[in-house]
Structure formats: C-alpha cells, structure tokens
Amino acid sequence: MRFGAALALGGLVPRLAAGLAGLVILSAIVFAALMGRLESRPPLELLPSLTASALAWGSGLLLAFASATQVLRRDREQGIWQLLRARGGTVKPYLWARLSGLAVALFAIVGGGALLTGLVAMLVARRPGLALSCAQSSLASLVYAAAFAVTLAPLAVAALGARTRAGGYFGLLLVIFLPELLLPWTEALLPGSWGELASLPSALAALRGALMPEHVDVERFVRAAVVLGLVAVAAFAYVKQQVANLQQERVPYLWSPRVERVRRR
C-alpha cells in the first residue's frame, strides 16, 4: 500500500493536485473561523461536506486522472511488474499496491481536508448542539471520502489504465458525468428510492446525506453502499482482466531512472 501510494503521488500533476487541495483546505478553515464569529446560527455543519465535495471533484479527480493514465502499460514497460515478480509477487499484489495506494492517496486528500475543516468548525461553534452537528457532518464526510476513494480508484484505472490518453479521459468522464446529466430521466424510470443512485456523484451524495444531521436514513445508506460496492467490484474485475490481457503481450523492458531508484531502495 505504501509503495502504491508513493507511485500514485509521484509526478508533477499529482503534486499539483495535492497543492490545490491544500489551498482549498486552508480556505475552508479560514471560512469556518470567520463563520464562527457570526452571532446568528451559521450553517457550520455543512462546511465539512462542502469541503469534501470540492476536494473530491477537484483535486481528487485530477489526482485520479494523473495517476491512472496508462498506468498499467507504464508499469509494465518501466519494470514495476518485473520488480514485483522478483520479490515473489503476482498479479494480486500488484493490483493491491496500485489500487489501494491510489485509494489511500484520494482518501488522504478528501477525508483529511473534511476532517480538518470539521475540527475547526467544532472549535468555533458557539453552542454544543451546533458542535455536535459539525461532528456528525464530519463523520458523514469521512464516510463519503472513503466511498469516493474506494470507488474512483478502480474506476479510474479501469478507464485510463490501458487505453490511450484521449480515449481514457473521454471514457471516464462519460462514466461519471453522463449518468449525472441523464439523472432527471433515469429517476423517472427507476423506483423512487433508487432513482438518485443512477450516477456516481448522486450515489455518493446519497450515502453522505443519509448520515447528515437531522437526516439519518439507514435504508438510504445501505442502498447507496450496495450500488457503490457493485461499481467498485465491477471496475476491479475489469482492471484484473486488462492486466491479464497485457500479460499476453510481449513488450521489451525499458529502463527508467525511477525504477532504478526503487531497485536501489
């Protein structure tokens, strides 16, 4: 997992995504401190969830794009596969390293930002009830961040790992945002309780909304968790099939300074 996280965060664009996430988190913390000075009841309990959404679909999506683009072919050509085989590894450890490492990196950005914002919101809350609502919202945002990371990591690698850059970007955006655009029509076709789960952003929002203050809904949470779990399992199975197909191809080993540094460690 540590090896996969280091690979996921390596490079200019992932570091840029982490830097942008830091700016968003800092802005949210300053905003929470300013809202705490208001005499009227500020919507502090909404701030952790808004921060998590901004981080997920901003820095998180950018990190997923950068880390997953042609990652399966790059790892094969740069010797990552050979390195794991030399250590006695097979396909399963490689998939675990890549997918869990990317998921941990995504959760660290989204969940870490939501947690820090929630802690500041609890500290500046003027009433115990508001502080408790901020704590519950922070917990819901952490669950949202975990679901986002576990779902998007295999989905991004499935869409981008072995395809061309343009085709992978188009495919991932199609899978994520086209169902969201068609949601008004799909909601009419599906049963009322399942209509909001027809797209990934909406299903994640439903998962978090089921745990928010004054809106706790266990059935809604279970439905969203089942749908997101099915998406993650299907994406993982597709990634596994892509790796099996790439193993059948014969590609000459390409030396790279990055792999050489890993070998020396």
Rank of each mutant, 00 (worst) to 15 (best):
1 M>A: 13
2 R>H: 04
2 R>P: 11
2 R>D: 12
8 A>R: 10
8 A>G: 12
11 G>Y: 09
11 G>P: 11
13 V>Q: 00
14 P>V: 09
17 A>D: 12
22 G>Q: 10
22 G>R: 09
24 V>H: 07
25 I>M: 01
27 S>I: 02
29 I>A: 01
30 V>A: 10
40 S>P: 01
41 R>Q: 09
43 P>K: 07
49 S>R: 03
49 S>T: 10
51 T>L: 05
52 A>E: 04
56 A>M: 08
62 L>Y: 07
64 A>G: 13
65 F>V: 08
65 F>E: 00
69 T>D: 01
75 D>G: 14
76 R>T: 12
78 Q>I: 15
83 L>I: 01
84 L>D: 10
88 G>N: 14
95 L>D: 07
98 R>S: 13
100 S>P: 12
101 G>V: 10
102 L>H: 00
103 A>W: 02
104 V>F: 01
111 G>I: 01
116 L>Q: 06
122 M>I: 14
133 S>R: 03
134 C>L: 12
136 Q>E: 00
136 Q>M: 14
138 S>E: 10
140 A>L: 11
140 A>I: 03
142 L>N: 04
142 L>F: 12
143 V>L: 02
147 A>Q: 06
147 A>Y: 14
148 F>S: 06
150 V>F: 11
152 L>Y: 03
155 L>N: 02
162 A>Y: 07
165 R>S: 04
166 A>L: 13
166 A>P: 11
169 Y>D: 11
171 G>Y: 12
174 L>Y: 03
175 V>C: 10
177 F>S: 08
177 F>W: 11
178 L>M: 13
184 P>T: 00
185 W>Y: 14
186 T>W: 11
188 A>P: 00
191 P>A: 07
193 S>M: 05
196 E>V: 11
196 E>S: 05
199 S>D: 09
200 L>T: 02
200 L>F: 03
200 L>Q: 09
202 S>H: 15
202 S>D: 12
203 A>D: 15
203 A>H: 05
205 A>M: 07
205 A>D: 02
206 A>W: 08
207 L>T: 13
207 L>N: 05
213 P>H: 13
219 E>L: 03
219 E>F: 11
223 R>P: 06
227 V>T: 14
231 V>Y: 09
232 A>I: 07
235 A>Q: 00
237 A>T: 00
237 A>W: 08
241 Q>C: 04
242 Q>V: 05
245 N>K: 08
247 Q>G: 15
247 Q>D: 02
248 Q>I: 03
252 P>H: 05
256 S>H: 14
259 V>G: 06
264 R>W: 00
